[in-house]
């Protein structure tokens, strides 16, 4: 299978603290790849290395065969950070149009993409409203739409479902699955919620900057001889100590 993202022996330090210690992972194209781990494990740092916001102190990150940071690769990455990263004074539509322009999208295609992305997150009736009037969940959905705007091959979502109600969360997961199945997108998602981890095709478990286990959820459960994915995580963590 073709690689979407390749992480090789990455080391990242902030001052004296090692946040990522010799992490390697291969993310194949066309799958949902979950990065799970407790808060502070280094998930966000790993994701930032993928979008080129951070530079590794050792090893390297490649996206679609290009060593990051790379501007051409960014054209094909839709990034949704933990914060909503929206302009509150602008309307939902203006936000999407702004990001579309940053990807040098032609005007006709812009309209089409904005309509499509707004539909995906069920916000097409709210496009004329200012973001400051949006609810928390609406902002999260708009941020997801903004990550989709340039129709990227790869979606990198940092905890996309935090603060979203269960119904909407299910809706977003349905949409992510559809994007993978119908449009062949590669989706990298970080989470610390176990039932979301189960929905991923592949999982990488990170703890204190170290990759402790990876594989498909079923494989992992079998390998550890437990009933639930949660137990795999607990056991794998204990084994290391």
């Amino acid at each position: 299978m073709e690689q979407a993202i390749k992480i090789q022996n990455v080391i990242k330090k902030y001052g004296k603290k090692t946040v990522l210690n010799n992490v390697s992972m291969d993310i194949p194209k066309g799958c949902i790849y979950g990065i799970i781990g407790p808060s502070g494990a280094g998930k966000t740092t790993l994701v930032k290395l993928m979008v080129g916001a951070e530079k590794a102190d050792g090893g390297c990150a490649e996206v679609l065969g290009r060593k990051m940071p790379n501007l051409k690769a960014l054209q094909n990455i839709g990034y949704m950070s933990q914060s909503d990263a929206l302009y509150a004074d602008l309307t939902g539509g203006e936000n999407l149009a702004f990001f579309a322009l940053l990807f040098k999208m032609a005007r006709s295609r812009q309209k089409e993409r904005i309509a499509y992305c707004a539909g995906v997150v069920d916000l097409h009736n709210e496009m004329k409203k200012r973001v400051s009037a949006y609810s928390g969940g609406m902002k999260r959905r708009l941020a997801l739409a903004a990550a989709l705007i340039q129709d990227p091959e790869i979606l990198i979502l940092d905890e996309p479902t935090v603060g979203i109600d269960p119904e909407l969360r299910a809706g977003i997961w349905r949409e992510l699955k559809r994007l993978k199945d119908e449009e062949g997108k590669t989706i990298i998602i970080t989470t610390h919620v176990m039932d979301e981890a189960e929905k991923c095709d592949y999982l990488a478990m990170i703890r204190e900057g170290v990759l402790i286990e990876s594989g498909s959820p079923d494989e992992l459960v079998k390998q550890y001889g437990v009933d639930r994915l949660e137990d795999v995580f607990l056991k794998a963590g204990r084994d290391r100590k």
Partner: peptide
């Protein structure tokens, strides 16, 4: 602070 700068820099803008 709102993270839009980070988002901005995750696009191919120079």
């Amino acid at each position: 602070m709102t993270g839009t700068m980070e988002k901005l820099m995750s696009t191919p803008v120079n």
